[in-house]
Design a protein around this nucleic acid. Structure first.
Lengths: 352, 352
DNA sequence: GCGTCGATTTAGATCGATCTAAGTCCCCCG
DNA sequence: CGGGGGACTTAGATCGATCTAAATCGACGC
């Protein structure tokens, strides 16, 4: 009788009193503890009892209260993700990969944007701590101190660095940028190019250094001039104008490798503006190989880094670290490959 | 004496016993309740006491425990955001706008991807409820039942629809897609075009219908053939090939309006492949005006919808509804404008 | 000197789950 | 027939904040 009343009352006032585990337990004629075990899929509970509880759950429309569980169990089923910027499609793909892996693990992503600013980064990290995330995937803002990961570790918060690394003493998932640069340089050299520029922009961080170093080493290995490194604007709309810098060099470039596909896109526009045909008059290599590369004309040859895969790797590393905090620091540096399309051609006067 | 020991012990074991409000209270020689009031910036507490507590907070490195607060106070300072897809730069910009507005309100975003699938959408909504989000920003998956927002409302969960609407009985933030189509059609008509196609793809939902209807009405208003609506593939890489459909019509098109900039990008590539010059031989209008539009050559004329702004609007609406659940359903439909660049020219044989 | 009032402060109950440690049963073995 | 063990089940304490209702304390008016 009384139970029947409970059932009727529950949906009556949906705002103030939500259905709780105690309601479920009463409905199923078991204790709160048993109901809790059923929810957590413990093998300890009998088949018939389990069924009764599960029926009660759907009958009452019970919704698990993570907040309460977290308080007691110290696990929030929540992962913080901090990126420096959302509008670059590269980060969107990364985020997609992370979200997918985290979701299939039954957890959710709390997202924050550091804007590549140290103060904002500190603020969002604190906020993540307040929300009790189980772990952190962090693409460190430029100029992040090397000690930050250790600091985070001292707080007992598992974390992995993604795309950029500030220290080798913490987990890291990224791509082998230097090897990617080598692939690009070797390819252009095989087409006879000797005056190869590297167009860069954005903040300076480990991924930046790795690419610059990769470029320098690959160039010197072939006894080529390795200092044609050209800064272009951050805004896509303004990159085209900066293309002229490629020709205002002591020895004008005949090919350019771009720091990312955004720059490649802008430079392609700038070359078009000068009446040059990409792939014939000038060679162009991008970096990242995001989906747009396939739709450019001519199609863009680009070093593929597969950001979605990096995101999944980072998420998996984090989950493993959460499960086993004692692990030594690990690195997951995935290989890049050069996706050759149509944006490169032989150097002028070059005969194979 | 004993207090001193507490202070020393607190940092000793960072994992198991975190610093709690009670520790802060003891350190500041006040009660837990007073410390709580200080944290929540209540005006009830005296200036000198407040200072003591604030000092204790920094001295102990205290971190607020949202989870515990949520349990008692029924507010999680958390907002759920559900998008159908992350890789389209359009959604990335939307997400950026949402994140920014939510962040400045001191709350965080929990992100989920529905993949435009009803079953996944249901699953992620449930997960958001489990996490006790204070509100939901939802871009409904295609074929979402009209009753869903009412359902969510019945659960006591404030929600706003974004970009797509399944009912007028719930908050909605979007853009005036039909007006955008009208602007595009009028512009092309003013250049003398009469055979105007509309290239579409993707799932069918309210934003899709609004654009198709807007196209039809604008065309019939000018006594033009309004049924050249052409479906192209979803994958950017495959759109170029489908461009031939524009010419396999009873009366071949001389201009095309694209459902979004992704299609415009692909169609531009397809026109290039046929040896046609965009803006001279054929006219092209995009929709969304994402950042790439400026970098295409020729620059893409596109209907601007400002997704970041829509995201901010949606976030603001949600915050207002959370603050005041009694409000009637509201709509925020922002105006579009035609960003004219270089991808359109006069129709063949057309003399102004 | 006493009651009242405003300004602060506080004890203790409470939110909804999990965890620990201790029961129940029931069966089977010696 | 007593007891040991396996398979379940459960009472009650607990996590760390907030909220309610009440206490404390001068000061002030009468």
């Amino acid at each position: 009788m009384q139970l029947r009343e409970d059932v009727i009352m529950a949906p009556e006032d949906p705002r103030r009193s939500r259905v709780t585990l105690l309601d479920v337990a009463r409905q199923a004629n078991v204790s709160r503890a048993t109901a809790s075990l059923v929810i957590r899929k413990s093998p300890l509970v009998g088949a018939e009892t389990r069924q009764r509880v599960e029926d009660a759950i759907v009958a009452l429309g019970y919704i698990y209260n993570m907040g309460a569980a977290r308080l007691r169990a110290e696990r929030s089923h929540t992962v913080g993700v901090i990126v420096p910027n959302l509008t670059n499609p590269f980060f969107a793909e990364l985020l997609g990969g992370i979200e997918h892996a985290i979701d299939t693990a039954g957890m959710v992503v709390i997202l924050a944007n550091s804007g590549d600013l140290l103060t904002r980064q500190a603020a969002v990290i604190r906020r993540m701590r307040e929300h009790g995330v189980d772990g952190l995937i962090l693409c460190p803002a430029a100029d992040t101190e090397e000690a930050l990961p250790a600091q985070i570790g001292a707080w007992g918060l598992p974390a992995v660095q993604v795309l950029r690394q500030v220290t080798a003493n913490a987990d890291y998932a990224g791509a082998d940028y230097a090897a990617g640069m080598r692939q690009a340089v070797d390819y252009l050299a095989s087409l006879g190019h000797t005056d190869i520029a590297f167009a860069v922009h954005g903040p300076v961080h480990s991924a930046y250094h790795e690419r610059v170093e990769g470029f320098r080493e690959a160039m010197t290995a072939r006894a080529l001039q390795e200092d044609m490194i050209i800064r272009v604007p951050d805004q896509l709309g303004q990159i085209a104008d900066a293309t002229r810098l490629l020709f205002e060099q002591p020895r004008p470039a005949t090919a350019v490798i771009c720091f990312n596909d955004v720059i490649a896109h802008g430079v392609a526009a700038g070359l078009y503006d000068r009446g040059l045909t990409v792939g014939r008059d000038f060679s162009l290599v991008g970096f990242d190989d995001v989906t747009d590369a396939e739709a450019m004309r001519p199609r863009l040859t680009s070093v593929s880094t597969a950001p979605a895969r990096i995101g999944e790797n980072a998420a998996r590393m984090l989950l493993e670290r959460i499960a086993n905090p004692g692990l030594p620091a690990r690195r997951n540096v995935s290989a890049t490959y050069l996706h050759i399309r149509q944006s490169c051609g032989p150097a002028p006067h070059f005969v194979t």
